[in-house]
Design a protein around this nucleic acid. Sequence first.
DNA 1: TTATTCGTAACATATAAAGTTACATGAAAC
DNA 2: GTTTCATGTAACTTTATATGTTACGAATAA
Lengths: 147, 147
Amino acid sequence: MKRDSRLSSVLHALLHMAEHDGPMTSDVLAQCLGANPVVVRRTMGLLRNAGLVSAARGHAGGWRIAADLNSVNLRQLHEALGEPAIFAIGNRNENPQCLVEQSVNAALEDAFSDAEALLMTRFADVTLADLAQDFARRYASRRDVKE
Amino acid sequence: MKRDSRLSSVLHALLHMAEHDGPMTSDVLAQCLGANPVVVRRTMGLLRNAGLVSAARGHAGGWRIAADLNSVNLRQLHEALGEPAIFAIGNRNENPQCLVEQSVNAALEDAFSDAEALLMTRFADVTLADLAQDFARRYASRRDVKE
DNA sequence: TTATTCGTAACATATAAAGTTACATGAAAC
DNA sequence: GTTTCATGTAACTTTATATGTTACGAATAA
């Protein structure tokens, strides 16, 4: 199954933007991500709709973060992306008349909904500021190694 | 992303087998599941390799459960299927040199591994016998409604 | 007016799950 | 022993979906 990597992509993009003065263009972000600029615009557009970033056209245009890094968490980003399906494993049939399948679906849904709830809690606990701080720590310790 | 429904399928098949005397053929199971008999053989073959079911060819052949319903849980079935990827969301790049992406991947992996651990715990807690009992309860209450 | 950059539609590619065809192998029934 | 039934499995096709690509319109600043 091909996995949706948009959450990873937008986080990567947002952290680069947080470390960068002024707007960044779709082309530059696409190079950072090893991705396609149209795909960047498509995905960042969802964050723009959620008010998390702003876009400017023309000269010196590009993408900017439009919110406090402390106020944006991973759960909000997941929501901004349209809450894509989390699990690669699912039921064969969502509306079974078969009582056997009803039992199977109920058991699986119980387990998956618990796991999803935990994931959403973890997502809500991590902000962009946390990630920026983690990056700063990694950056500092890499410099230490070099010195 | 197209979701892997094999766990749901084998559970559905195993419960039908548990309610049925004698072996069930791939064709019959495929009809129960609304699936293809070759796909049934392919998937059930993984359970056979794990010793959970047995297959017999020829007249009066087919699939049988080869274990105590109390001793088989969902986690074992997931393992028998080769532990397919659980999440439809993932990192863009699993081996990033970019320190920003390292921070992103670490944060996401923390959250996902917690959710996966919980899911595996839930899976280990549910046996085929539990599902058979849940089915019996549903079956009984449907009869009540009809009477 | 020109260069730049986003916005977006339309189409192409890549990947993986499930379906399908075909045939070999083995086991029971006659 | 031959026929029928059923699994075992390889090879290929279909389908779904994430991502990539081309093309061009719209807006903005030099």
